[in-house]
Amino acid sequence: MKSVLKLYFTGFRKSIVYLLLLITLFICIDSSQAIDRFELGKIINTIPPNGPFWKYGNVVMRRKTKKAGMSPVVFSHWSHRQHYTCRVCHVDLAMSMRSGDTGITRADYTSGKYCGACHDGRVAFSVKESTNCDRCHMKEKELQDLENQFNAFASRLPLTNFGNGINWSDCLSNGLIKPVKSISSANIPMSLPDKLRNPMKLGTATARSDVSFSHEDHFAEMDCSNCHPDIFSIKKKGTEDFSMDRNIFGNFCGACHMLVAFPMNDCKRCHTSMSNISGV
């Protein structure tokens, strides 16, 4: 233990540790107060820029592929979520919502788990065919194909300026996409309790930035257990340390709304009385 500490606190490492500590201290002090516009501006600037629409929500998996000498697997959320709701993969097929967590192996998916549940040669192209490897272990050409496919797909869908550049919830409510809620008759999700049908008002320090949260919109894609109790308490105001900067660092709403669902810089989507263009 001692030697580990010693190693850790020498030279370069030490400065990093102190820096980290300083940052955390600042944040601790920060989050105890309401933020003014200047501070908010600073926070918003920490949000990574959007990047190309077709790349948003793509998960690149290279932990295991690298060792095996394969190209990394590129999984695109946009191509799957048009057919399936989040819950199909993240509840029924037990894929974690943290990358690297599930630890998918080739033996797993060739035996019908995870990706193999659909990529069996019947529902979608098979994981077993050697001619198909490149379709997931993507190289330059396949990445270009993916981009082209995206552009063809997105062209007919409502535009936003954020994330995938697609307003997914409009797509869903207008029936432009019809993702299935379950791929097995044994796992029919329960219906939403009446009490949760109306959007919830989540108060913030300033009234103008109050948030409207719709259980119904989220329930259309997910199950209760995707959020409760790990991410949010089921008691209103029961979630501790629930603040905007924590969101931006990938906690709470940020667990999804930084990576797959529309990102945090689309302020207006949640803070309905705000505007994305200042002064309008």
Partner: peptide, 15 residues
Amino acid sequence: ASITWAAGTKKRKLP
């Protein structure tokens, strides 16, 4: 700090 920062994220799902 890292413990409080783990709040509000998904817990590791046991295999």
